[in-house]
Design a protein around this nucleic acid. Sequence first.
DNA 1: TGGTTAGTGTCAGCATGTTGTCATTTGCAC
DNA 2: GTGCAAATGACAACATGCTGACACTAACCA
Lengths: 172, 172
Amino acid sequence: MALSAPANKPLCGGDKISVRLEQRELPVHSPKRVLFLDLVLSLFRLNGLLIAEGDAMTKQLGLTHARWKVIGAIALSSAGLTVPGIARVLGQSRQAVQRITDVMVEDGLLLYTENPKHKRSALVTLSEEGKETYNLLREVQDPWAIENTEDIPTEELETTLRLVRRLIKKFN
Amino acid sequence: MALSAPANKPLCGGDKISVRLEQRELPVHSPKRVLFLDLVLSLFRLNGLLIAEGDAMTKQLGLTHARWKVIGAIALSSAGLTVPGIARVLGQSRQAVQRITDVMVEDGLLLYTENPKHKRSALVTLSEEGKETYNLLREVQDPWAIENTEDIPTEELETTLRLVRRLIKKFN
DNA sequence: TGGTTAGTGTCAGCATGTTGTCATTTGCAC
DNA sequence: GTGCAAATGACAACATGCTGACACTAACCA
């Protein structure tokens, strides 16, 4: 096995090794089933790659993927979000989000502000520093998004997004 | 916020809360860019949901997502895989895979067998118990795959898979 | 009003994954 | 054959995420 991946980077296939869903020792099923399982496996890989992309992209900003996800969620919400609210948006446990936001408040990126609708559950907002960071995030994220979509037809993006949303709804 | 998610489950939105990529305080960009960022966020959520699905599906088998990913990768490889090989297939670091396989060997699911091509790097194979587990895995996975695709046109699955693969190649 | 149910904060334990580091082995070019 | 770069194994530190548990608060209904 002579591959050229750096020793400590996630080794993200795509080189000589590629997995196809072969049918071995088990009866063949519908091609759609194979298609779907193949898609699921590919989604796992794409997820990892996207996180790696984001981390590389935001390393200079001192962000990690957990952090820019939170910043993005807050920045995109018009109404204001609580910790469990962010968790719902990101599809994670509230405990996981709580831990991240606690550290980010300590680091001065976020603020807990009073929530008129709930005495205990504070609203999480961007501090001035957090807003600046978000703007910097946008500055690297936008060119990245544009660059990666310029050769992809809008219709394909729409079809994919629709299917992904459909699956999300299904598993929700 | 009156939601009905169990207290300790990943709170996977989709209910009243939905994030749309609004443009606030920043110039509007191409709709494609918004589409793409929306897709990325959705993929994060779908990834979490798929893992949760898989975990729920395989809980009775005593598997976790890290484990059925490994079992699946080994079962689908015709040539035999080393630890770094599995890592490449799954798009993860070899260290992470090594830890999982070590435990799975201890648990009797996997075997390290001699690798004629490499003195130090053993081939990871399924033990008898591992093969049984894989068959059980297939028994729950296949109906799941069929159930979740019966109302989705094959062409959409193909378009999505193609796009996902394209992105994988791009980030690889 | 009082009670029940759901949502939230908090702490702890554990599983997973990345990165860094270093020694050792392989493979390849010379 | 030698030497070097890449691959691998091994260990450690750290970030992230899930689950369980328990107390407290909010919301809702009879």
